[in-house]
Design a protein around this nucleic acid. Structure first.
Length: 287
RNA sequence: GGGGUCAUAGCCAAGUGGUAAGGCAGUGGACUGCAACUCCUUGAUCGUUGGUUCAAAUCCGACUGGCCCCU
């Protein structure tokens, strides 16, 4: 079994490359994206079209409803089950996606507890939570980062000290990162948002809005949360569109930081004028 | 041609004599269960020039540019 991981910021062409590589390696494709697991989030997540799949088996796409609560824990579990299955079958696998932590927790030795009770600690201020944590061990978590503070204190309260070694690889794989100049990427992504609108993004989102769905996926996904604000009358459609573009740019920046510092990525610059060249380059790399 | 008015970072913008608020954008970064999340970090000597003053973005003059009015 050969595992090739394709990462990179949103909009560089990961999907396209994944299809080409899958054909070359006779591989299956596994999703590495936190939003593409949801059914119906298609235009906004730039999900592969059925017509683009070229009969290549795709896994971990469209496996949940938008109102389901899906987390890294689930992804890791289901992903690893699939990987061991493919290993038995000696199948080559291509993992594509832009969710760094999802992919990292799948392939490296991240350990999560099977059961956990979560407390929001509504009665505690951030400072107090931080103090609580420091009774047990030191932490770098910033006082303002309540989400992380709560998480950490829960871990302590649940006594779920785990022995992860997040640098240890659990599989043999190679990570290819697709990249290009930031300016070019921003331009591509801005245009892509306009295209999404033309293709009916508003309708896609409205469908969920009208059902009163306010799930995690909808409220955090770029392209969805902004349009919800528009439907709520808090933004004009134009402001929503610009906000989507801006949030996408912010997201790209964070993706780069994660891939650059958290994973062992071999970067390839995309040749947009001749994508076949890029494919060739990648194939040479993985030979 | 004459009069008035404005000129502070990529954008918006405070400051009216004592050595440049803030917001946005951008940048760099953190991140083991919301990760397309959450959080942290960072920039100018004030259009040019001469002068007044111990001290000027802040006062005076000239110039340049924008806007408005008059002929």
């Amino acid at each position: 079994m050969k595992i090739i991981v394709i990462v990179g910021p949103t909009g560089v062409g990961k999907t396209k490359l994944s299809i080409a590589l899958a054909k070359y390696l006779n591989a299956v494709i596994m999703n590495g994206d936190s939003m593409q697991v949801y059914k119906g989030l298609d235009i906004g997540t730039a999900k592969v079209l059925e017509s683009e799949k070229e009969n290549i088996p795709h896994f971990l796409f469209d496996i949940r409803n938008v109102d389901d609560n899906y987390t890294i824990y689930d992804y890791q579990k289901e992903g690893r089950e699939l990987l061991s299955k493919f290993k038995k079958e000696n199948k080559n696998v291509i993992i594509v996606g832009g969710s760094g932590l999802y992919i990292k927790s799948l392939l490296y030795d991240y350990q999560f507890n099977d059961e956990e009770k979560l407390d929001n600690f509504d009665n505690l201020t951030n400072e107090e939570i931080l103090l609580e944590i420091k009774k047990f061990h030191n932490t770098d978590i910033h006082v303002n980062n309540r989400k992380r503070l709560v998480r950490e204190l829960n871990k302590i309260k649940n006594n779920s000290i785990i022995n992860s070694n997040i640098h240890k690889k659990l599989y043999d794989f190679k990570i290819i990162g697709l990249s290009c100049d930031r300016d070019i990427l921003y331009d591509i992504v801005n245009k892509r948002v306009d295209k999404m609108f033309q293709e009916g993004l508003v309708k896609e989102v409205k469908y969920f809005y009208d059902q009163g769905i306010r799930s995690k996926a909808i409220l955090t996904g770029i392209g969805y949360k902004e349009l919800y604000s528009y439907f709520d009358g808090k933004l004009t459609l134009d402001d929503a569109r610009n906000l989507i573009k801006k949030n996408t740019r912010h997201f790209i920046k964070r993706q780069y930081t994660f891939f650059n510092h958290q994973m062992d990525v071999t970067w390839i610059n995309v040749n947009f004028n001749n994508f076949n060249e890029t494919i060739k380059e990648v194939i040479n790399l993985i030979k």
